[in-house]
């Protein structure tokens, strides 16, 4: 006899490896977008939370979740978008941060984000590790990133903003 908890866990495992559509080296589980899966009233409820309220990837993530589960014969699925608890970069594991760096995105440096803008962070270049970097724009290629340049290797790079 399989319990509903086991079934929900099975669903969770099936979808936890879905890559983030914008940063394909990390999964929705690594990022903390996938919160949990519960079974209730004959359906699996998948709770996801956006990194940013306007994160345009949420629709695509929802589609991918449904698609993967459908190919595994699981039909009764509801994807629920939740805002509590509010997503924070504190949820990124050190493993996820390493993956970001390898991909060329500087991971967020502090773990606590109470004062985001008044304490400018020292950002190490993900290419050459130099700390001689400067901000080009607080707003980068996606809502969750800022644009920096490295004065040592002259490359520009994205910083995953502390949030």
């Amino acid at each position: 006899m399989v319990t509903t908890e086991q079934l929900a866990l099975n669903v969770y495992n099936l979808i936890s490896e879905i890559p983030d559509p914008e940063i394909p080296v990390i999964t929705i589980k690594d990022l903390g977008i996938l919160r949990d899966v519960v079974y209730s009233n004959g359906e699996f409820v998948v709770n996801i939370t956006p990194t940013y309220m306007a994160c345009p990837a949420m629709g695509m993530i929802e589609d991918q979740i449904k698609e993967i589960l459908a190919t595994n014969g699981i039909q009764h699925v509801r994807v629920n978008l939740t805002y509590t608890p509010a997503w924070t970069t504190d949820w990124l594991s050190s493993e996820a941060k390493q993956k970001l760096k390898k991909y060329g995105i500087a991971p967020p440096s502090h773990s606590s984000c109470t004062k985001l803008v008044n304490s400018p962070e020292t950002v190490a270049c993900p290419q050459c590790n130099s700390k001689d970097t400067e901000l080009i724009s607080r707003f980068g290629s996606t809502a969750c990133k800022a644009l920096y340049k490295c004065n040592s290797c002259k490359e520009s790079f994205d910083l995953f903003k502390c949030h």
Partner: peptide, 20 residues
């Protein structure tokens, strides 16, 4: 261009908040 990205990113934050 950086400013174009900045203003449209702010616009996107606003539209996300409006949706919520």
């Amino acid at each position: 261009i950086e400013e174009d990205l900045a203003l449209t990113n702010i616009a996107l934050d606003m539209i996300g908040r409006a949706q919520a």
